[in-house]
């Protein structure tokens, strides 16, 4: 199974997050592009892992974040939205099977 969901935007103070759920992945992968990668890259990664755990997904994901200066709450919100969208796709997918 391979599913994709995006949330957010590339407008200033926002970020675009793309989650790919892929059965071929052997671990979670996080890629972050940000103007403040030096200052906040580590923290953004931590928050992303927290949201992966909170979401309780039992599969590995590849997450790509293109940051335009988003605050932490925006990062969380966009991750949650993307995960919810993936979740909804999975329900649809299961019904299909």
């Amino acid at each position: 199974m391979k599913l994709n969901a995006v949330a957010g935007s590339l407008i200033s103070c926002d970020l675009l997050v793309e989650i790919e759920l892929n059965d071929n992945l052997t671990d979670n992968e996080i890629i972050i592009e940000s103007p403040s990668i030096i200052q906040y890259g580590k923290k953004m990664k931590e928050i992303t892992y927290e949201e992966i755990i909170r979401n309780g997904l039992k599969k590995f994901v590849r997450i790509k974040i293109v940051d335009k200066g988003a605050l932490d709450y925006v990062l969380r919100a966009r991750l949650q939205t993307a995960f919810n969208r993936i979740g909804k796709m999975m329900i649809v997918g299961e019904n299909d099977e």
């Binding site: 403040s36 030096i38 200052q39 906040y40 890259g41 580590k42 923290k43 605050l71 932490d72």
Partner: peptide
Amino acid sequence: KLVGKPEPI
């Protein structure tokens, strides 16, 4: 409080 303490360059 809003953005956290930045890591140094």
